[in-house]
Write a protein that binds this DNA or RNA. Structure first.
Lengths: 106, 106
DNA sequence: CCGATAGATCAACGGTCCTTGATGGGAGGT
DNA sequence: ACCTCCCATCAAGGACCGTTGATCTATCGG
């Protein structure tokens, strides 16, 4: 029973971070594990400032973490925000299920 | 193991629909069950055309369904898109978990 | 030190999204 | 038929978002 109301702002931030093709592609790449920005720009053939922008959005939403190693910045998935996501979706799912069964006619 | 790549567009649509405070508030209200637009505008003190716009976004994303009864349009949660959401989040979660365990040092 | 590299940040532009008020259309009531 | 109610749709305006190229910072190698 997530008390969603006070955390609506956070949910908006989370879903907004996920509502972009480039950012979803970044997350998809990060599923393979930690990667630095230069690897990502190379693999995705995207301008560096563009990815930097999107990585910041993902980081601000708590979806990724960054780690510095010399000149390189490594990004990786963060399970923190993802668990919040799961709660949000779960709560929706339960409500949708109960609504469906209540509507069941036959 | 969701084949996410081809359905990125759909994921973007889904997450975009969820990335708005008004729309999340609508979903929250619909958790209590089917409601008509006039009930929603009344409860949320929002302009009718505004809610109509947002309900259309939610409907286009597959998150809600509508049903006509006389003069009234009733909206309710649809479990269809929500299950897709669940898959997307699940896939992210697994990747984040495995990344975390791979990074575990001590 | 100096140059080169990795990446963040900034300003400007174009596009998309949300809001608002007005209009239109369908369904009932009389 | 007419009027009323419920809702969708439209056009206009403003706000926000993503892209791009340039600039700035920090780190490493010589």
């Amino acid at each position: 029973m997530a008390a969603v109301a006070p955390s609506i702002k956070k949910a908006v931030t989370l879903f907004h971070a996920l509502s972009d093709e480039t950012r979803l592609a970044l997350l998809e790449r990060l599923k393979d594990g930690e990667q630095c920005v230069c690897e990502l720009t190379d693999a995705m053939k995207a301008a560096q400032s563009r990815l930097s922008f999107h990585l910041k959005v993902l980081k601000d939403a708590g979806l990724v973490e960054d780690r510095r190693d010399g000149r390189w910045m490594y990004y990786s998935l963060s399970s923190q925000a993802i668990e919040e996501l799961e709660d949000l979706v779960d709560s929706l799912k339960k409500a949708a299920k109960s609504a469906a069964s209540a509507r069941c006619c036959c």
